[in-house]
Amino acid sequence: MLIDWTTVIFQLINFLILIVLLKRFLYGPIIRAMDERERTIAARLAEASRAEQEAQEHARVLAAEQKEFADRRAVLHDEAQQELDRWKDQSLDRLKEEVAAKQQSWQQTLDEEQETFRKKLKVVIGQQVFSVSRKVLADLADNRLERRLLEVFLEKISREAEGFSGDQGSVTIRSGFPLVDEEKKRLDEGLDKIFPGHGALDFQEDPALGFGLRLLTGDRQWEWNLSRYLDDMEEDIIQTLRRSP
């Protein structure tokens, strides 16, 4: 008989005992360890997932902040650019105005200086002309001219002293150039006709008179002086030049 039923019963019991033993020492601990590990891994995965979500949330927040910063920077940049443009335009306008004012002032000053210079030039030209004229006349003055001057002077006195009897006092004649005797004699003769019985003639030389003569008698005097003519003419011409544009 291949089957020993006593052994079969013992083997059944042995098998049941082995089930209990393995459940106690193998399946239970192993299953618990695997479950615990699964829970640990699941917890770690959940933690990792949560950390990832937090990281994503942080990334979103960061991206939003970066976008906000970028927008803010763009706005600030635009505002700064507008402010700069405005300042530049204002500065340019102000500078243009200042330059225009300075240019106008400078132009005005220049015009005034030109005008002043022109006027001074005119005066100097006039003065030079008459200076040259005086010099020419002085250089050209000779006996004939001086004699002619005596004649003209005598005619002037004769014309102006009409009705003037004279005080019979001394007569002083001042000349801007030295008178020769002949000339003195001619004056004496001429004055005799105008102021008969006049006193002695007193001839004095006064270079300040230039090409001219001055007669003093009593409280009157007559004078003919080229410088006086020239001075009057010069004054007239200068006034005319100044009035001209």
Binding site: Q11, L21, L22, T40
Partner: peptide, 27 residues
């Protein structure tokens, strides 16, 4: 008989081996 004895040996081996391994399980 031999069947029972060898069975007990196998039972002892499996139980003791399991106990040795599972007494310090790592999670």
């Amino acid at each position: 008989n031999g069947t029972l004895v060898f069975t007990w040996l196998v039972m002892l081996l499996l139980s003791f081996g399991s106990w040795l391994v599972t007494r310090r399980l790592s999670t």
